[in-house]
């Protein structure tokens, strides 16, 4: 048997390239990003020796940005809730069907990750867009609405888009959690007199919480910081932080604002993840 010390050394060697990569491409850029908010930047050049808290103070003192952060938060939360509502049944179905149906389901689940952004945007236009959009056509046909509703360039449209591309990140961890579940637990519940619904809500769902929480954290963070979907489906002037950062830098060349907002976006995302982890730990006390 090898001593743990030897093992650690070998692990360190294996991890070295990844660590170096992360330092160069993650840690350093993040520090720079944070620092860019603390100096004056003119014409993309840092003005030497211009350390200032003014940029942070300007943005943190402006209620306008609080509103946008709040909107961004709702966008992330909304996408997470929809992914959970739509993803959970799919994950559950996946664990209940035979191998052939699983293959088909898996392809369908992963499809959003495999299509490229251009095709997807085009698809969204067709489905969400206007009088001729599939959703409107369907709702009109069914008689749920009398006039076409606007979906494209609204929060609803953005949430639909986010939900669609983020679903795999919810479904896959939930599948993993459901697959790991001992089937005899469900039999035990039935044997003790639980109905299907009771078994589902008292046994299956609580036991899949590790997967649900992982999926939710993933979907929330990816949605909260997502740029492409709000930019494409939110239309012009759709105010969430990621599109705002883009406009600040690309349209207005306000590098300072961009850096401050990026740092705040990242910081708030990390704080929320941390809070979420603490809440999860309480919820998952029963796991080892």
């Amino acid at each position: 048997m090898r001593s743990p010390r030897v093992g650690t050394w070998h692990q360190a060697e294996l991890a070295a390239p990844a660590v170096v990569f992360l330092i160069i491409f993650l840690a350093i850029p993040l520090l720079l990003l944070f620092a860019f908010g603390l100096v004056d930047i003119r014409a993309a050049r840092v003005v030497p020796g211009s350390w200032t808290l003014e940029h942070y103070a300007r943005i943190l003192g402006d209620p306008f940005y609080y509103r946008i952060f709040l909107r961004t938060f709702w966008m992330g939360l909304g996408a997470t809730i929809f992914c959970l509502l739509f993803g959970y049944p799919v994950a559950y179905l996946f664990t209940r069907v035979g191998p052939a149906a699983r293959q088909v389901l898996l392809v369908l689940i992963l499809a959003p990750l495999l299509t490229n952004a251009v095709v997807r945007t085009f698809g969204w236009m067709i489905i969400l867009g206007g009088q001729k959009g599939l959703i409107n056509a369907l709702l009109l046909r069914v008689g749920l609405i009398d006039e076409p509703v606007r979906i494209l360039y609204t929060m609803s449209g953005v949430l639909i888009g986010l939900t669609q591309i983020q679903l795999p990140f919810m479904i896959l961890p939930v599948i993993a959690a459901l697959e790991g579940q001992d089937r005899s637990l469900q039999e035990a519940a039935a044997g003790l007199g639980a109905t299907w619904a009771q078994t589902f809500f008292h046994v299956v769902v609580p036991l899949s919480m590790p997967g649900v929480l992982t999926g939710s954290a993933l979907v929330f963070v990816i949605s909260y910081t997502n740029f492409a979907v709000p930019a494409l489906l939110g239309g012009g002037s759709f105010a969430v932080i990621p599109t705002f950062i883009f406009e600040q830098i690309s349209a207005l060349l306000q590098w300072n604002n961009g850096a401050v907002l990026s740092s705040l976006l990242l910081g708030t995302a990390m704080v929320m993840l941390w809070l979420f982890n603490r809440a999860s730990a309480r919820l998952l006390r029963w796991t080892r």
Binding site: D182, S184, L185, E187, G191, L207, W286
Partner: peptide, 13 residues
């Protein structure tokens, strides 16, 4: 009917 499973199947949560 009461059943005791081989692996006990206690609800871990």
């Amino acid at each position: 009917i009461g059943m005791v499973f081989q692996n006990y199947a206690l609800f871990p949560h």
